[in-house]
Amino acid sequence: MTSASSLTQRLVICATLIIGLVLAMMPMSVGVAVWRPDWPLLILIYWIIALPHRISIGIAFLLGVAVDILLGSTFGIHAGAYALVAYTAARHYQRVRNFSLLHQALLVMVLVLVERSLVYIIEYYLHNAPLMYRYFWPALSSALVWPWLFLILRKIRRRFQMV
């Protein structure tokens, strides 16, 4: 592995994460937007499972801060939640890799649920946020898009020969 190709690999990972952020920010009608999958988190989970020694809690934290800025929420909320999800994924990456896509999708649903619950709990303590069930619906849509996202990202990973 030459250093140049390692640089392109890093750029590819960055690009996918940025695409995730763009997808998360894209304006949509309200009816569709409540079903918007948690793109940045999904892409992060994929890279953690695929390359646990390169993408881990540090990147998750930074991505979380980026999400915080983009969403305009209090700094650190998404950062902390993303770090926790990243920890879970990085701890069990070997097991998760051997799951079937369906299994993985279910796991992703749980992870997104955990992340959203954490964010909600912190928001509740900070701003007395009301409980909205529609905030948790994306867990379902995230599970639905996971298999496709997984296959696309795997194709990208193999294309750039990332181990």
Partner: peptide
């Protein structure tokens, strides 16, 4: 990993308090 998580959570907490 556990150390990194603790560090990240501490940092996040600090950020929340600061902000």
């Amino acid at each position: 990993l556990r150390f990194r998580l603790t560090l990240a959570l501490l940092l996040a907490f600090l950020l929340i308090v600061l902000d």
